[in-house]
């Protein structure tokens, strides 16, 4: 059976840490899939195929979680605090809340602007910059992992969630732009 007691870091044989080597993670992922992927069992019996499907699904999920900074932070937070979702915390950073409103407003105005493409690019760059800043914060917060720092990490996760959502919305606008042209 798939060893569900292992956490994703253990499955990949990597230290439990927010900071990780992306190349090493990718190499381990490929090595794992070479062993468990259903293509390796295509000519085997149904049971082996099913087992391999379970393993490959788990490996994909673990890789997806560890690869993406937001998912990795959420997962790590759950591991460290024992709470399944860090999403309960409410954001209590007035400065960021103001920023959030500004960004929302900017995005809402874009479709009616004259130079949509240009404004969109500027906004996307701004979002990227803020995401990078949160990732840097998370690295420090998880490094220390004190209860206070973990609370701060939960706040950073909240901010990242908002920024990711905003980025998705901006991308949707970009998609629609290309369809028209």
């Amino acid at each position: 059976m798939v060893d569900f007691s292992q956490n994703h870091f253990e499955l990949f044989g990597m230290p439990i840490s927010f900071t990780l080597d992306a190349d090493s993670l990718a190499a381990r992922y490929r090595a794992l899939q070479k062993i468990v992927h259903p293509d390796r069992y295509a000519a085997s019996g149904e049971q082996s195929r099913r087992l391999s499907l379970q393993h490959a699904t788990l490996v994909n999920e673990a890789y997806h979680t560890l690869k993406d900074p937001l998912c990795r932070a959420q997962y790590l937070l759950a591991l460290k605090t024992g709470e399944s979702s860090g999403g309960q915390a409410t954001l209590s950073d007035p400065e960021f809340l103001m920023r959030q409103m500004d960004l929302r407003e900017t995005l809402a105005e874009i479709p009616d602007a004259d130079n949509v493409q240009e404004k969109l690019v500027t906004l996307m760059q701004e979002i990227e910059k803020l995401i990078k800043a949160e990732i840097a914060c998370l690295a420090i917060q998880f490094e220390e992992s004190t209860p206070e720092q973990l609370l701060a990490a939960a706040q950073s996760v909240q901010k990242m969630q908002f920024l990711n959502k905003l980025r998705n919305e901006a991308e949707t606008i970009e998609d629609d732009l290309e369809k028209d042209y």
Partner: peptide, 16 residues
Amino acid sequence: VERRMNSGIRKAMAGH
């Protein structure tokens, strides 16, 4: 079958 798969995983990660 399970033992094979788990052994394969261990070997791959050990190699890394």
